[in-house]
Design a protein around this nucleic acid. Sequence first.
RNA 1: GCACCCAUAGCUCAGCUGGAUAGAGCGCUGCCCUCCGAAGGCAGAGGCCGUAGGUUCGAAUCCUACUGGGUGCACCA
Length: 581
Amino acid sequence: MNLFSDIRAAVIAALDVMVAEGALPEGLDFANVAVEPPRDALHGDMASNAAMVLAKPANRKPREIAEALAAKLVADARILSADVAGPGFINLRLAPTLWSDLTRNVVQTGAAYGRSDLGQGVKVNVEYVSANPTGPMHVGHTRGAVFGDALASLLDFAGYDVTREYYINDGGAQVDVLARSAYERYREACGLEPEIREGLYPGDYLIPVGEAIKAKYGRDLLDKPEEVWLVDLRSFATEAMMEMIRGDLASLGVKMDVFYSEKSLYGTGQIEAALKRLQDLGLIYEGVLEPPKGKLPEDWEEREQTLFRSTQFGDDVDRPVKKSDGAWTYFAPDIAYHWTKIERGFDLLIDVFGADHGGYVKRMKAAVAALSEGRVTLDIKLIQLVKLFKNGEPFKMSKRAGTFVTLRDVVEQAGADVTRFHMLTRKNDAPLDFDFAKVLEQSKDNPVFYVQYAHARVCSVLRKAAEAGWDMSDARLAKAELSTDLHEAELSLVKKIAEWPRLVEVAARANEPHRVAFYLYDLASDLHSLWNRGHDDASLRFLQEGDEAASSAKIALARACAVVISSGLAILGVTPAEEMR
RNA sequence: GCACCCAUAGCUCAGCUGGAUAGAGCGCUGCCCUCCGAAGGCAGAGGCCGUAGGUUCGAAUCCUACUGGGUGCACCA
């Protein structure tokens, strides 16, 4: 049950009648007609902009349309009153029985309340994390992982057919570096002194990999030239790193559907095929790029390269797909990779990148637009940096000093729930402060705690009711009748619950899971507020001593709130607490 | 030099893709908390939405130009 879309449908129906009666011209587009929560509760329960949106195309005065529309709307039993206000808003007051209907419906629908068919089963591929398989995940990756995962869940909830995907960058030169670093650890495992030269990965996490290599190959690889072991150790070490990364992701509760290997694109003709396609479209040419304006790089020289005409799709310059020595650039397998996504039948692609990859956005979008001939859109979400703090002091990470903070560190200290929620309380394109002290604080100042506490309070009420020997099962609550004369605090809560399906759609359309987090905070706030009023006004308590019928109505409302918190938290990947300890 | 992102209360940030008098938390100020749900509660002050133009019934939101901050900038991944 989506109260907003129901009422919007009523508005559209009324508009159709007006068209049929000649009060409005034929052929109007109602797409922009919205029914929204009003900014101020004094204005009513819902507001529509219909008259103002249609005024111009209908060539009528907004207030004129509004008056006529309002007159039609009040005929609907669900609509108590429709008043025209301001420049042409129609403020609606709903029949009080609707709140009761809604509450029962939420309890009955349970976790499915708020699910939407907005996505129409459109196949969407969300690629996120895609950390290089050269070491453990660090905090920066963590935010991307949490964001991507929540976005995927959100889209799933909104009716998309979602695939969660991780692109393993196991094809490039960094994997050679990894293999060489692992080889040194292998020598170490064999009792030799490792030579961790400049440019190799110094991390301890490769020590067990070295031991594993020894366990597999014995001393066979010692004193052998690189050609002998490089290929084997590349895949061996990559496997080991991916194993570790999978573990990191699991500790955060992130589970991918697909791990797609870059390496698998090489030697299989896939890169060539993707490039061939661009070539056939006339978008590949041999040429020389203009030198960049401003300060010229020291070693700049003219080179002829194979270029992709990304400028035809809004990029600033055409981009090379081959180096001057004929090898592929990194961009080439990326093109091929995205081509496979298109070929695998996805209608919509979303890439979650770190903000430092911002310069890559235009060319990637260009490639997807070109390959799919505009059929598939690629949305790229850039994730800003995480700034770490410990007790208010900035906490600098340095790979060299070995003080970089891994995902595991964060999850072990803060817990997956806290980490996830906190990282979603900011827009993806805004930098995020992560202060261990603040994040772990158990008080109402901590949004995670605040939201979980609201859920726990409802659970506590249900437990108490059970202790009193009352049946407060969902089946029972789904039949409860709420008063038609709700207190303002109760109304505020039930209206917020009514907004959930609408919020899901808005958040999904914008690809912005943080909106869910903020909504949950507001919802929790309404519940706490109502709860607190129970101090002074016993009639507002959920448990009405000795009055099972009255209690069931109020508990139904509380339960509905918990249902929404629970499914909202599920989208964020946070477990709802049953009790606070 | 160019491109992208950001700029909203003292601080940290929302603002539902153009709607009504711009919101929340922290901090600040005041009141309440013997007992009934206090790891508290209620209320208040605080704003030229970076600046200047433009688009229209209407702009924090869209466009342009500035200012200030971040990121990235020929074959690296």
